[in-house]
């Protein structure tokens, strides 16, 4: 953490950046996002295994952009989001300074997004054994069982949209769920409204989701909604060898490749 803080202080004092987006201590010792604007406050930065919130969500927020050029403390989940956001032309190399951080709090400096991309090659976006086990359980259900499972799981949702707000990829100013001409998705948090919202959310994240679990961690009801996107990720891995976002081949499911095995488009 020492070198991260040192770098952050340098960046602020040289005015290379105006704000450091990082983690600091919050309620009950748990981490929360911090927006450090003074060198003296750099000491408040922390990093530990509980720092799972994806800070990249702030990179596209108008209120944060107004603070000036940021440097962002970026563990792997944040780095992945940065690459995906870069592919989607939401951020540019000159807009931010990325302070990569390893699990043992070491600073990793990047001169370019391409450097982040090659760094990430050592961190293939793969599902772990526990995730695979849960997915296998859900996939193994009969159609009726699976419908019952998701109906029950999503019945808890009251549409606070914390999942959307916490997701670094949900940066649309007006979300599809707010479109009302026509009204694609019922506003109400009833069975149909919830089911349609979560299916739509997952579909919009197909091939874009960086599997950071921000949506699940944000959910006040602890709904396993992240398994909707994980299921797609598993398919993408198995069928297309997808291992995470890159600068050249971003939106997996909306990108056509002549080598694709399906021939319906030819």
């Amino acid at each position: 953490m020492v070198d991260v803080k040192k770098k952050a202080a340098e960046l602020l004092s040289s005015e290379a950046v105006k704000v450091i987006i990082g983690y600091t201590e919050g309620t009950g010792g748990k981490p929360r996002a911090a927006f450090i604007q003074n060198v003296a406050d750099v000491e408040k930065l922390i990093f530990n295994s509980q720092c799972v919130m994806n800070l990249a969500v702030y990179l596209t927020k108008a209120e944060i952009k107004k603070l000036g050029k940021p440097a962002i403390v970026a563990p792997v989940n944040v780095l992945r989001a940065i690459i995906q956001l870069a592919f989607e032309v939401q951020i540019q190399e000159s807009d931010i300074v990325v302070l990569g951080i390893t699990p043992d709090e070491k600073l990793v400096e990047f001169q370019s997004f391409a450097a982040i991309e090659s760094y990430l090659e050592d961190f293939k976006m793969e599902l772990d054994a526990k995730e695979k086990e849960t997915l296998a359980k859900i996939s193994g259900m009969s159609l009726e069982e699976r419908w019952a499972y998701w109906t029950e799981e999503l019945s808890e949702c009251f549409k606070c949209y914390a999942c959307r707000a916490a997701c670094p990829m949900c940066y649309c100013h007006k979300c599809a769920v707010e479109q009302n001409k026509p009204q694609w998705i019922p506003v109400a948090a009833h069975q149909l409204g919830n089911m349609e919202w979560h299916i739509m959310r997952a579909m919009h994240l197909a091939g874009r989701c960086v599997n950071c679990d921000a949506c699940h961690n944000a959910c006040p009801k602890g709904i396993n909604l992240n398994f909707l996107t994980k299921l797609m990720l598993a398919d993408a891995q198995e069928q297309l060898g997808y291992t995470g976002p890159t600068l050249k081949e971003g939106n997996l499911l909306s990108t056509y490749n002549p080598n694709d095995q399906e021939n319906f488009i030819k």
Binding site: R32, A33, F35, V187
Partner: peptide
């Protein structure tokens, strides 16, 4: 408000928040 991400969780769990929308289905 810097770190607020603008979701509605606080209002929806609050015992006194009463803001609502009216919609036809």
């Amino acid at each position: 408000a810097q770190r607020c991400i603008g979701c509605g969780t606080c209002a929806f769990v609050c015992p006194t928040c009463a803001c609502f929308d009216i919609q036809d289905e």
